[in-house]
């Protein structure tokens, strides 16, 4: 299937076509939303083996209830909400706490710190941006994000700063009041900065 020639349809057109059994429209819905679904699932589900089942569950629910979608929100936000609730339900069922994701490789965290320790100057002398590049930046930031607690901060930071969703959209996905989302994000950014600074301060010692 050629993804590059997919036409740009509105949410309503896509939903109507998918409900009419048009498989390319259903595939387009999946492709347009899987990035957001991945962000939520990767942040909330610690066991990589379970993610496939959860993603499948999310989309089957979405398509089963597609006729009930009332276009009060964007289709991606609605699917994001299903994803968030499915992940929460999974964690409840497995009696798991919404814990930070562990790196697949046990040494990855140390690797991230090693990468930081390789640079010569502390943060106040050398801006973070200059020091972080490409994969190093992903590793270091990933570790700093994983340390955010409570873990809902990790999801909020990702949705706001990576997926560039608005406060209202995040509130819709997480069912948290918009004011709470703003407040949590403020604390999460603050904590993230402290986490990064603590890494750099260790480096400076």
């Amino acid at each position: 299937m050629n993804h590059s020639v997919e036409q740009k349809f509105t949410d309503q057109q896509l939903v109507e076509r998918a409900l009419g059994g048009h498989q390319p429209a259903a595939a387009q819905i999946v492709r347009q939303t899987e990035g957001l679904v991945a962000q939520i699932v990767f942040k909330m589900i610690p066991l990589a083996d379970d993610r496939k089942d959860i993603v499948q569950d999310v989309y089957l629910k979405a398509f089963r209830h597609l006729a009930g979608f009332r276009f009060n929100a964007k289709l991606s936000t609605w699917i994001g909400r299903i994803t968030y609730n499915t992940c929460l339900h999974y964690l409840e069922k497995k009696r798991l706490v919404f814990l930070p994701e562990r790196p697949a490789d046990g040494d990855q965290e140390d690797d991230g710190l090693d990468l930081l320790l390789q640079s010569q100057q502390p943060l106040h002398q050398n801006p973070i941006e200059q020091q972080l590049s490409g994969r190093e930046r992903t590793a270091i930031l990933g570790n700093a994000i994983r340390k955010l607690s409570p873990p809902v901060y990790q999801t909020l930071i990702t949705l706001y700063h990576q997926e560039e969703l608005s406060y209202a959209e995040i509130a819709e996905i997480t069912s948290l009041p918009e004011g709470t989302v703003k407040n949590y994000l403020f604390r999460a950014r603050n904590q993230l900065k402290k986490n990064l600074l603590s890494i750099y301060n260790r480096e400076a010692l």
């Binding site: 299937m1 498989q23 259903a26 595939a27 999946v30 492709r31 899987e34 679904v37 496939k52 993603v55 499948q56 989309y59 089957l60 398509f63």
Partner: peptide, 9 residues
Amino acid sequence: VAQLVLEQL
């Protein structure tokens, strides 16, 4: 993901 889901629909 699309292939996985479409097979189940």
